[in-house]
């Protein structure tokens, strides 16, 4: 069983990224559940999405111990990394938006938001850059599966930019 947590603020698209990740894993024949929690805000506030992947049916729907936590804001990083396993767990943070990186053994800093705005052209693609990062680091799904899943879930006129974002994220780590 693998457990991934994607966190940020409302509007950053972490739930969409989690859905795409889960769908890609499903397309590879895995069992998946995806859940989220969020506050009343449509934008801002803390947003958390989880994906559990297993070969057997998954019953308890929430993460007990995450393998990877991705945090796209300082608030999310502070709030959501604590149950990571000290030895095995991996914390991935946005290099610019999480200036005070929590003290933790395995941290990877990636300028996710910067890649989205400067190299893809819009902050809007932050979540798909982040997805690319997770695909690479988690080694749970292939790039191709993620690519297919992105194509099925984003608006048709944005496919090209989203695939670019996915690739940039994948290559950034």
């Amino acid at each position: 069983m693998k457990q991934l947590r994607l966190s940020g603020s409302g509007g950053q698209g972490v739930i969409t990224a989690a859905i795409i990740f889960a769908e890609a894993a499903m397309s590879e024949g895995r069992q998946v559940v995806q859940s989220q929690s969020y506050g009343p805000e449509a934008r801002g506030g803390a947003s958390k999405a989880e994906v559990i992947i297993d070969d057997a049916p998954i019953y308890h729907p929430k993460i007990i111990k995450p393998d990877i936590v991705l945090s796209l804001t300082q608030k999310a990083a502070d709030k959501y990394y604590k149950d990571l396993d000290n030895a095995e767990g991996l914390l991935v943070v946005d290099e610019d938006l999480v200036p005070n990186v929590p003290v933790f053994a395995n941290v990877i800093k990636v300028p996710v938001t910067r890649i989205a705005s400067e190299q893809v052209g819009k902050m809007l693609f932050t979540n798909i850059v982040a997805l690319g990062v997770l695909v690479k680091l988690s080694k749970l799904i292939s790039f191709e599966s993620a690519e297919m899943s992105v194509k099925g879930r984003v608006p048709v006129h944005t496919i090209e930019q989203n695939i670019k974002a996915l690739k940039l994220g994948y290559d950034a780590v």
Binding site: I19, A22, M26, R30, V33, Q34, S35, P61
Partner: peptide, 9 residues
């Protein structure tokens, strides 16, 4: 809400 908002294969 658990099942309503849960996504599964």
């Amino acid at each position: 809400e658990i099942v309503g908002h849960l996504r599964e294969n």
